[in-house]
Design a binder for these strands. Structure first.
Lengths: 209, 209, 209, 209
DNA sequence: CATGAATGAGTCTTCATTCAT
DNA sequence: AATGAATGAAGACTCATTCAT
């Protein structure tokens, strides 16, 4: 499904507000006011507030699919390179679309919208399948350990990144980096996260120190 | 602050419903109905729905403090043993109070209630400080590596456990363990999580393979 | 089901407004304003506007049942007397509860509320059955004709009374009776209707001139 | 006023929907969707929803006038024949345009649209005048009784037919005629109604048995 | 001539809270 | 101390209508 400019504008406004205040905590009037449109437009374009949320998912997840799949199909990369790229891809995506990932966390906690829950689950299943494939490939090539719990491994990646994103202000304060410009801090954080998770994955996947 | 039996009953009902439906998604009437009390009682006992949430935090976090602090003060344990116990303590706590931790995640996403946000932040700061102390102790004893990012390490622990708790149904399905009784599966999951995170922490803290 | 004073007050206000403006044409705010109560009270007492309508039916139809059944069971009356009393009962009821009967007509035209439609149908079926019994009794006693279409006969009674009630202003004007006091005109109209329908029923039921 | 093909198409769609769901229960969007036209067309062609309703009346009542008047002017028919033809005309008209008559009932119940109310009243007055003339003619010829309440008589005709039309499904069921094809049942019903009302009118108008 | 986009008023309902008892 | 009744504000949504194209 395609969205026109106005729809995307509404979706992005909603994305920000949902992330800041939660789905229930955001009224359609809030969204309309912020987006500079009439309240009725939301029903007009999406049918309902719920459907607007689903449209948001469709827009964001739709783009995600393409990037992940193409990465893993690349034959010129070694399994380790692929895993590392997967990590960096994930960090980039989450840090770039922080709002969306905050919403995602909120939605998954409360099982309210079944359509979204199912969609999110599908993404998770697909990702796990792809990564499993990748791990198996590495195992066959003798690079990875025999016993790897893919789900727990992914939970560590996703969990660590989420947790870090959500508490980054606190992290900044703790490390006395409040004065660093936002952009630079984000770069720094992403680099640290990348190294951190790659270290963890090495411990999980290989026998090296 | 002390809570009487009726208040605790209300808090625990609210805890369950907040976890299931989110804060905004739960009405005081829902809570009153489930708890078998009058709607007005909530305002009467707690002042407001918001204050009820704060009371919930007070009750749960108050109990937490005692357990964590005493553990780390124990002089008879080695730094590694303490870290391992910290991990198991955390896993136990989260798995036992899943409802509460779900709420916590939801609350931290949306910055709505400043009182709770501040309280949660205090807990995090205190925990980080204590763990920092512990790490420093291990470093001085030459057991731990010099450079350890405590926050990222804790983010990995907290993030991995949260992520695993929230998607445990999916994990179960993925591993064909739907037939195992709930209690047994939880034990199994906790054991796996424990080993998993201890492995990660070893990689972060030590130089061994 | 029993209704308290406030509920009855709301129901009666709604009855009047529904009759004047139709169900869809009456907003809950209209009802609340006229009844001097808060809008929320309607949901509070009845659940919804629809349910308020159902309550109105319950209140009115509930009272009707008793009067009709007792009348027809009376052993001391001849079939003709019973038929005549049935006619007068119906005229009285409709003229006294004009609002309610207007609503009934409106509801039956649009098949919107299935609960009410079913209830109304049940009343009709029950009435037809009772009257059929009565006619059969008269036929066995040789007073009534053999072939009588009970439904058409009842349709004539109900239709004539409805039609007359709904166009009484016009009837009054046509007969130059605008100056007669309301009460007196109603009496007159009821008497005329009574004689008119009894004449029709005699033609349907008996062989006399 | 003349209506073009598109306007008539819209009017007829509206007629059906108004009959099914009532005026307020039908949105202009419903009509537009069913008619396969743009929503704005209704305002464009008729000015407003209200005016569309008036156009519907104009269309239907306009056609009615011609048929009734010519019938009664025919000098070759006896008063009794004319009355009988009037009855059959009415039955035919109502059964053929059931939708329109349902709407008419609904509109007359709620006094909302004054323009339509007035138009409907005019029709009624004109009809009553014409029938009065007809009755007077019969009285002068010694065929009809001296004292006849024309309005009540017409109310009986109109009321009986309306009532029968609106509850025909129930009538069918009551008489175990659900298996008869629709068309045949309608013919049967019309014949029965015709005989029924003619019997009633004979009782009202003449002295015969 | 015809329409897709847009709007503001209005709909019913739910909510947390208060108050008299 | 505890509660049933009541309320005003706010919720999402639908509506008939308008306007620029």
């Amino acid at each position: 499904m395609e969205f026109n400019d106005k729809q995307i504008q509404i979706i992005e406004t909603a994305e920000r507000l949902f992330a800041e205040r939660g789905f229930d905590g955001t009224s359609v009037r809030d969204i309309a006011d912020e987006a500079g449109i009439n309240v009725a437009m939301i029903s007009y374009y999406f049918g309902s507030k719920e459907k607007l949320m689903e449209a948001l998912f469709e827009l964001r997840v739709g783009k995600m699919k393409i990037r992940v799949e193409s990465l893993l199909k690349d034959e010129s990369l070694s399994p380790i390179e692929k895993v590392n790229m997967l990590i960096d891809e994930h960090i980039d995506r989450v840090m770039q679309k922080q709002c969306f990932y905050k919403i995602m966390v909120g939605v998954l906690v409360t099982n309210k919208n079944p359509a979204i829950l199912k969609a999110a689950n599908n993404v998770k299943i697909r990702n796990a399948a792809v990564v499993s494939e990748l791990i198996k490939d590495g195992q066959e090539k003798g690079i990875f350990k025999k016993k790897v719990d893919v789900i727990l491994m992914l939970n560590t990646m996703v969990g660590t990144v989420s947790q870090t994103m959500m508490s980054q202000d606190y992290y900044r304060e703790f490390n006395d980096q409040v004065d660093i410009p936002d952009e630079e801090f984000e770069k720094l954080l992403k680099r640290k996260l990348s190294i951190h998770i790659k270290t963890l994955f090495k411990a999980i996947l290989t026998n090296e120190a």
